[in-house]
């Protein structure tokens, strides 16, 4: 039980104070769980972090579930998971309520319009960063281009494109494998 409470507390703290995505939580988790309490070794923590990225779903939560399960079984998984999700859930609910009360006119609208423009910048930046590390093979560049054009022209939905891309990846690999 003590381990569960530690997991809950550490993930609550990490979740409440790390901005822009879940991976930013890792250094805090490392300090609290590996260094201070030595409940898990650093190697496992980062192995799980890399592994979490290969599963669908919320990466930070998957990572928390792995660490929780490793340290204290199924109950550890739920406590760590709850800790990873709750701060974002509570803070975002409150923020959304406040946001809905904002007047959409006058100087506030002017500020919102400017803020909306930055949201496009961060999406461009995210696409650019992922592209820089993942678009090396010709086939991947073609997949990215096709997904881009089809989404922009509204031909095919994103879920279909994701499933098809996964299939194409497997097909290309099995083609290479036979050679």
């Amino acid at each position: 039980m003590k381990k569960n409470l530690i997991l809950l507390k550490v993930y609550l703290l990490a979740g409440a104070f790390t901005f822009s995505g879940g991976m930013a939580m890792l250094p805090v988790i490392e300090r609290e769980l590996c260094e201070k309490r030595s409940l898990i070794d650093k190697e496992s923590l980062y192995e799980y972090a890399a592994l979490s990225q290969t599963f669908p779903g919320v990466i930070a939560l998957t990572n928390a579930c792995f660490v929780g399960k490793k340290i204290n079984g199924a109950s550890g998984m739920f406590f760590a998971g709850a800790g990873a999700v709750l701060p974002a859930y509570v803070l975002m609910s409150a923020a959304t309520l406040l946001y809905q009360m904002l007047p959409q006119e006058g100087p506030m609208l002017s500020a919102l319009v400017a803020i909306r423009a930055t949201s496009a910048s961060f999406l461009f930046a995210a696409a650019y960063t992922i592209a820089r590390y993942n678009l090396k093979a010709k086939a991947n560049i073609i997949i990215a281009l096709i997904c881009f054009i089809f989404t922009l022209l509204n031909f095919v939905g994103a879920p279909v494109l994701i499933v098809l891309s996964a299939l194409v990846g497997v097909l290309i690999y099995s083609g290479k494998d036979k050679k």
Partner: peptide, 22 residues
């Protein structure tokens, strides 16, 4: 292999969303 191409797909998908917002 599947994940690598899904990552590639996500570049195109995110880029398209960014263009829509722009």
């Amino acid at each position: 292999a599947a994940l690598t191409s899904v990552k590639a797909a996500s570049v195109g998908l995110i880029f398209a969303v960014a263009i829509s917002i722009m």
